[in-house]
Each structure stands twice: as structure tokens, then as C-alpha cells.
Write a protein that binds this DNA or RNA. Sequence first.
DNA 1: CTGCCACTTCAAGTCGACTTGAGGTCAAGA
DNA 2: TCTTGACCTCAAGTCGACTTGAAGTGGCAG
Lengths: 142, 142
Amino acid sequence: MEISDVAKQSGIPASTLRYYEERGLIRSMGRRGLRRLFDEDVLERLGLISLGRAAGFTLDEIAAMMSEEGPRIERAALMSKADELDEKIRQMTIMRDGLRHAANCRAPSHMECPSFRRILRAAMTGRISAKGNPVGLANRKG
Amino acid sequence: MEISDVAKQSGIPASTLRYYEERGLIRSMGRRGLRRLFDEDVLERLGLISLGRAAGFTLDEIAAMMSEEGPRIERAALMSKADELDEKIRQMTIMRDGLRHAANCRAPSHMECPSFRRILRAAMTGRISAKGNPVGLANRKG
DNA sequence: CTGCCACTTCAAGTCGACTTGAGGTCAAGA
DNA sequence: TCTTGACCTCAAGTCGACTTGAAGTGGCAG
């Protein structure tokens, strides 16, 4: 299949496919003229890449994991990533509850709400931080 | 207090404080020579900024929210952010469970594990995505 | 009074994952 | 055969939140 077919079926832009090839994440089976030709199984590979990205792995990490035949992923790496996600989920849950509380709180100003101040303190003492791997998820502008 | 004191007490680098001032997130009360002088309450303000960042707001959004006297945050914005967090938590939970399953799965290769393939399909159909606001959390390099 | 050096400014660099733009190529349809 | 335009390459730009570097300044200890 040509790159446009892969793009159509995977939903991933051709420019990204070329980029992934350059990064060693996928390979084309040859060319017809200039045009890349891909094997069907590139789709599964792209799925794995999406999966890895969603899990918070960088492209380099994914490339390393998928280097040899098939997805030979170290189970330890998966566990460690799962643990990271646990921690992030924990922190995000605190944030979510805090936001929701602040939104419903009857205190005249947020600063007078004990719950808000508690979260604020958590943020200030670094127990919650804004830095880290963007284990981002769908971003709806709004 | 001088910028170095603020940096020390907040844990935020002086360069970041200057950057925040430039972005209109904080204000200095004046100068001693070239040196900025900050009011004590800048610390609380910095806490709010950290909090906002941890909640996934951009600096611009935070600046808008904190523009006038005190944190006059629209409750609707808080709720909406809480909803976003809910969605992210939901997706991250799926990812985490999937990773953990894959790590423990006895299938000879991940591709032969039904659970893994289910998640893979989710990633491919875009139900899980890697894009979005980095509602990142503490990043321990590892 | 002088020198130190923590502060200052402003421009430019960083990181990750792409996207975009300019200019070039070539398989296929008319 | 000629034209078309989807594909190609390579360099540079983008985004957000900072950091870094070079060059300048001035409060204060000595």
C-alpha cells in the first residue's frame, strides 16, 4: 500500500509516517518510483506506536521496544509505566476533587475555603506538580 | 522580599519568576536599584499558579483568571477542567490496567493476548490518544 | 571609594513530536 | 508525449514553559 492508503487507514498524516520512518519506528518495503510502499502490517505497528504514546512512552523508547521482530516489550518497563500512571492518576484525582469542591464551595472567596487552601498547600509544597511526561489525552479545545 | 528570597521560599527559580512577571502572572512592588522587591503575598499567588498548572491550565488561562483582585475564578471553568480531568483519568486507568495486564500476561507474545489486542484496537481507533494538555505530574527520571 | 557579584535585560536556545514550505520528481491518465 | 499533482527531500518553523548566555548595573561590604 502507498503512504496515502496507510494515512487513510490509520488516520495518521503522511508527514508523520515519513517522520516515524526517519525515526526508525516503521519501515517501507520499497518504492514505486519515489513513492514508499508499505506492508499491511505497518498498521498494527502504528497501533502499537499509538498505544505506546498513550501510555506515556517517548518515540525513542517505543523505537527501542519495537526494534527487533515483533513487539518484544520488557514486562518490567510496562509495570514501571503502570506505576507512573498510578501516581499520575492519584494526583489528578486530588486535583479533580479539589476543582470540583472549589467550584461548588460556598465560601465567599476560594481563599477562605479550607479545602481549597489544603490543595493550594499541596501545590506549593510540590506534592502536586505540573511537570512531567504528557500522558496527554484527547484535547478538546475549550 | 527580594527575588532570591521568593525563589528560595517558593522553590521556583528566579528566572521563572521574572518570566511570570513578564507574562503578567505576578507583580513586583518596586525595585531596590535594579532588583525587584516582592510583597509577601506573591507566595500565595505562586501557589495558585502551581495549582492551576497542575490542574492543566495554561499560563495564559491562569493569568486571565487571576487578573483582577484575588483569585476570582469562574466556577464553570473549574467544573469544566474537572470534567477534563475525569476523562483523562478514565483513559489513563484503561492504559494502566492494560499495561499491567500485558506485563503479567502469560501469552507468548503480546499480540496473542486478547486484552492487549483490545487496548491496541482502542489506541488505533483513537479512543485513547497521546495528544493533549500535559496535565503532567511529578517527573521522576526513570 | 572600589570592587564584587547577585542581580538585571534581551535574545536565543531547549525539548518532543510533528508540521510546513520551497523546490524537485515521476507514474499514470488524456 | 505531455501534463498533472501526489509524492518526494531537506530545512526550518511551531507550541508551551522555561532556561541559558552574553553583556550591563548598582547596592553594599571592606
